[in-house]
Design a binder for these strands. Structure first.
Length: 359
DNA sequence: GAAGCGTGGAC
DNA sequence: TGTCCAAGCTT
């Protein structure tokens, strides 16, 4: 009996999961947080890796993950650590609220869950730093629950397989429904990693390797020749530039003055060099910002400019160097110890700039 | 819903 | 050089 509904299915097909799992078994990547085939995943390591991997590449995460799990092998160890030490270990990885939430989350898992991560997606979702994606990822990967993960990779893969041309973020609910419909009952943990691996290695934003894709026959975007254009995204606003003068203040022992930023917001809780306000204005001269300096000194502006791109603005600084007159309260560090200070990258650039011009 | 929140690598 | 963007979450 001819059946147009099955010969031209309304969706790419019910058998996509098995072919993807077969591909995954052949191309499984070895990663520090990934359990070996047949072995049980450690929920702590899965959680830790998922937090680190938020908006961050595998290459950037690897060394941080090994360092963290070496220092703090269990969630109880991490919960018992001082936040300062966690922030210092996190320095350079970016999105520092993740580190603060991670530390809070570890404390809650110990206090409320006896040091054992919940396996239920809704319970995981309640933990700080754990959103829809991360809750689903932990449920699927650590506990093999049939949770549908929805990250940037899955969005892209779904947009292409189903040729969804509606731009993000409007298309998100549609893409999520497609992803949920494809999630299998068997091996949901492997499937979650497989579909993300597919997006990361085959169904890439540019130049997708459709020839190697296990779903190439089913892919509607490839058939229409529009795979590389998907998913469509709304244009983003231009980034403004903020400028400031950073103060490199040294004492009679050659130590430099640092301070700790407020606990929330931009670079919350991280170390920084004192500076004038970060304003969307032309670069101020020394006379305009002398009142914001951390103390009296024979300030002189060093040649050159420090540039740094943040998420929503570009940052330009000039560095004023000076020798402190008298003693001043604050955090004084020898320049050769700055490597252990846990400086965010923007501050590290200031330090390099100052040292280059003062030596 | 929109804005705030880092960084480094690829092209 | 600039642009995009990566296993998102919080407010």
């Amino acid at each position: 009996m001819p059946d147009t509904a099955t010969s031209t299915p309304s969706h790419p097909g019910p058998d996509l999961a098995p072919s993807l799992l077969a591909w995954y078994d052949r191309h499984r990547r070895v990663l520090p947080w990934r359990a070996l085939p047949g072995q049980k995943a450690d929920p702590y390591r899965v959680w830790l890796s998922e937090i680190m991997l938020q908006q961050t590449t595998v290459a950037a995460v690897k060394d941080y993950f090994l360092d963290f799990t070496g220092r703090w092998p269990t969630v109880a160890d991490l919960a018992a650590a001082h936040l300062d030490d966690v922030l210092r270990a996190w320095a350079g990885l970016g999105y520092y609220a993740r580190a603060r939430n991670m530390h809070r989350c570890a404390g809650l898992v110990v206090e409320r869950h006896g040091g054992v991560f919940p396996s239920d997606e809704a319970e995981l979702r309640q933990l700080p730093g754990v959103g829809d994606y991360t809750a689903a990822a932990i449920a699927a990967i650590a506990f093999d629950r049939p949770a549908a993960v929805m990250d940037g990779n899955v969005e892209r893969v779904m947009a292409r397989i189903f040729a969804v041309e509606t731009p993000l973020p409007t298309a998100k609910p549609t893409l999520k429904a497609h992803a949920a419909a494809l999630t299998p009952r068997r091996r949901p943990g492997d499937y979650a990693q497989a579909v993300m691996d597919l997006g990361a290695t085959i169904c890439t934003p540019r130049s997708p390797k459709c020839i190697l894709c296990p779903w190439t026959e089913a892919c509607r975007a490839r058939r229409r020749g529009i795979a590389e254009t998907l998913p469509a995204k709304l244009a983003k606003a231009a980034k403004p530039t903020r400028r400031a003068v950073a103060f490199w203040l040294t004492d009679d022992q050659g130590r430099v003055l640092l301070r700790r930023r407020p606990p929330k917001g931009m670079l919350g809780g991280m170390m920084e060099f004192p500076s004038s306000a970060w304003l969307e204005q032309p670069m101020p001269d020394l006379a305009a910002v002398r009142g914001e300096a951390p103390g009296a000194a024979d300030w002189r502006i060093l040649p050159g400019l420090v540039r740094h791109g943040f998420t929503h603005f570009d940052f330009e600084l000039t560095v004023a160097a000076g020798r402190s007159r008298g003693s001043l309260d604050g955090i004084w560090m020898a320049p050769d110890q700055l490597g252990e200070a846990g400086l965010p990258t923007a501050m590290w650039k200031i330090a390099r700039h100052a040292l280059r011009h003062l030596e």
